[in-house]
Write a protein that binds this DNA or RNA. Structure first.
Ligand SMILES: [Mn+2]
Ligand SMILES: [Mn+2]
Ligand SMILES: [Zn+2]
Ligand SMILES: [Zn+2]
Lengths: 135, 135
DNA sequence: TTTATAGTTTAGAATTATTATAAACTAGAT
DNA sequence: ATCTAGTTTATAATAATTCTAAACTATAAA
């Protein structure tokens, strides 16, 4: 994804392409592979080396804005820190209880042959599987 | 579950049946139905009305001890607060994005016809499905 | 182009959830 | 009854996140 595309992505979701947002978006989306992150890891990544500094408040604001816009998504965990994913396609996760690491499971690696009906008046938005691993 | 059984449950997991632990355990397990809670809701429930007071620190300690002992389990959410479940059987959840409520899905309401192999040297400890609902 | 303004960034304070500390207390063994 | 490791508690500390309000800026309008 090139800078032009990044700017369009931001504009298309009603977000002004500010210096900070473009910097963060390039860091998140100009990669070969999707990945998982926390605000803490993203903030470190963004603010390392000689690059222009972005405040922690802005990292929080931007992550929230990108989540609301659907550019990233929040991941289910049982931890006190929020995890996010640049892979917004429907997919599943392994959670390694020993290393505490989350890794993607390809969507077609899991098949469901029976899914419950949603309660009246509600629709299924998505379905996520988490497989916990142990030694 | 009667008081005697509660005391045994605590003893069997190496926990002394103190006044506070028994009070909390009775509140959690002497019910017809399992339920979901946070430390905050449990603390309110335990410390309301004329009952003996239990400190918040003890509620945290006890929830941690009960989780380690396998009497309750922590639930996957994408929130900053930890949720717990008195239903320790393998089961799944609906998560209502509008009301932000978690409800149980019976285990046999979900069937998986394909599950990925765990990475080398790891075993599958359990598998949880979360179905997000929207209006 | 300037100008106006709504949107954005920021440092720092505030809040919230959780964990740590260390002194007082107690269950249960002897 | 005495002893002691385990437990409880008030309170402090830490960690994650949200709030605040002043300074700044992207961009639309003049
Ligand atoms: Mn915390
Ligand atoms: Mn928080
Ligand atoms: Zn993922
Ligand atoms: Zn449940």
């Amino acid at each position: 994804m090139q800078k032009k595309a990044i700017v369009n992505k931001l504009r298309s979701s009603g977000l002004r392409p500010t210096k900070q947002r473009v910097l963060i978006a390039r860091n998140l989306f100009e990669r070969d592979k999707t990945f998982h992150f926390t605000v803490e890891t993203l903030n470190k990544e963004i603010n390392k080396k000689g690059s222009d500094k972005v405040s922690l408040a802005t990292v929080y604001n931007t992550v929230e804005a990108f989540t609301k816009a659907g550019h990233i998504k929040q991941i289910l965990t049982s931890k006190s820190k929020s995890y996010f994913d640049t892979n917004i396609k429907s997919h599943h996760h392994f959670y390694d209880e020993d290393s505490k690491e989350l890794t993607d499971i390809n969507y077609n690696q899991v098949k469901l042959s029976k899914v419950p009906h949603p309660p009246k008046g509600k629709k299924i938005k998505n379905l996520e599987v988490v497989i916990r691993l142990q030694k």
